[in-house]
Simulated scan of single mutants.
Amino acid sequence: MQLYNTLSAKEREILIEEAGKDRLTISFYKYAHIGNPQILRNHLFIQWNDLEVLGRIYVANEGINAQLSVPADNFEAFKTHLDSIVFLENVRLNIAREQDNKSFLKLKVKVRHKIVADGLNDATFDVTNKGIHVNAEKFNELIEDPDTVLVDMRNHYESEIGHFKNAVTPDVDTFRDSLDIIEADLKDHKEDKKLVMYCTGGIRCEKASAYYRHKGFKQVYQLEGGIIEYARQVENQKLENKFFGKNFVFDHRRGERISSDIISNCHQCGEACDTHVNCANEACHLLFIQCESCAEKMNTCCSNECKEIHALPFEEQKKLRKGKGASNKIFKKGRSEALKYKK
């Protein structure tokens, strides 16, 4: 039995268009002790492939992290299957506010060392000893408290386009980088300050809250369900929205608008803009913010050099890439000397 994709993204895109079915973009995570991640991985692939699930799912000994899309008419069957797995029964599902039938074009279920790359190797660190989960209403109260320190646990390119009022937004490339920076900055306030954290869907805060409790912080809170669930509760309960801008998401949409505020700028001309693109030069693929005018002028490239390469015939581009490793720009999202207006 095949346990991998047989269709290209383009072929899948055509099938989605021909099917004409609405799809739901969903994310969820769960920390749990999984004895054999490979067996679970294979089971999920077989079951979800039959349900036409597409997405990116990581399975590890410490749990599962899933971002996916499923045909709306298969949602109940998908939920039933999740509930049949003991540690996933009634798991919270974050359903995207802005749907896109092409948010994912392949099903990738991968076994990883960890479901969030944190670089932590402390055997005494218990990820299940987490902080206090709070809903949107309580979160709004906490972040107005003068004894609260609100921290964005996401990376620089995520918080650049949207963040909460008065949040500390570390200028970091990775989740691991932020852990030590925040601990160092707050080392004198482990007992007297409320440490309140948020992220996209909650998974990074879950790990971070347990880590900071392990490091001696006494009052640790996290936003339940992250920004995705916060936006849903704010809308449904008519609460005050304290998030400005867009929420960066890890699929083809790249962002969901939470408020009308545009707090970032085009990295090439400086105009107000919060639209992320990937450089069209496949050898670069840099993620950066580009307005429509610059996208037209630069042919969706980050620099004149990339624009020239992208204009070459495809076979010539392949020859230029031959024997070279992937550009490290793909790991340095939004960081390049070519981006004049990167904050």
Rank of each mutant, 00 (worst) to 15 (best):
I227C: 13
F217S: 04
V220R: 03
Y212L: 09
L223C: 05
V234H: 02
G226S: 13
T200E: 05
K215G: 04
Q219S: 14
I203M: 09
R232H: 13
R232T: 08
Q233T: 13
G226M: 11
L223M: 07
E235S: 08
N236P: 00
Q237Y: 07
K207E: 03
T200D: 06
S209I: 04
Q233S: 14
E235Q: 10
L223H: 04
I227W: 03
A210V: 10
E224M: 09
K238P: 02
A210P: 00
I203P: 01
Y212S: 06
C199S: 10
K215F: 03
N236W: 06
K207D: 05
Q222I: 07
G216Y: 10
E235Y: 14
Y211F: 11
R204L: 13
I227P: 01
Y212M: 12
E235T: 12
G225R: 00
F217T: 01
Q233M: 12
G225N: 03
E224V: 03
Q222C: 09
Q233R: 14
K218V: 02
F217V: 08
C199V: 05
V220W: 01
L223G: 05
Y221I: 07
V234F: 06
Y221S: 14
R204H: 07
A231M: 14
G226T: 08
C199D: 11
E224T: 07
G226A: 11
E235A: 14
R213M: 05
Q233P: 08
S209R: 02
T200Q: 03
L223I: 09
G226I: 06
V234S: 05
H214Y: 08
Y221Q: 12
R213V: 03
H214I: 12
H214S: 03
R232N: 13
Q219P: 00
C205E: 09
E206W: 00
C205N: 06
I203G: 04
G225K: 00
Q237H: 12
Y230E: 12
A208P: 04
Q233Y: 14
Q222E: 15
Q222D: 12
G226D: 07
H214C: 05
Q237D: 15
Y212D: 09
F217H: 09
K207Y: 02
G202M: 04
Q219W: 08
N236M: 15
Y221L: 11
Q233G: 10
G225E: 07
E235I: 13
A231I: 13
A208L: 12
E206I: 06
K218N: 06
R204P: 01
R204I: 07
Q219N: 15
T200A: 11
K207L: 14
E206R: 00
Y230L: 10
Q219H: 15
A208V: 12
I203A: 09
V234M: 10
H214G: 04
Q233L: 13
Q237N: 12
K215W: 01
K238G: 15
Y221A: 13
K215V: 10
K238C: 15
A210Q: 01
K238A: 15
K218T: 02
E235F: 14
V220Y: 02
C199K: 02
G202E: 02
I227M: 15
L223V: 07
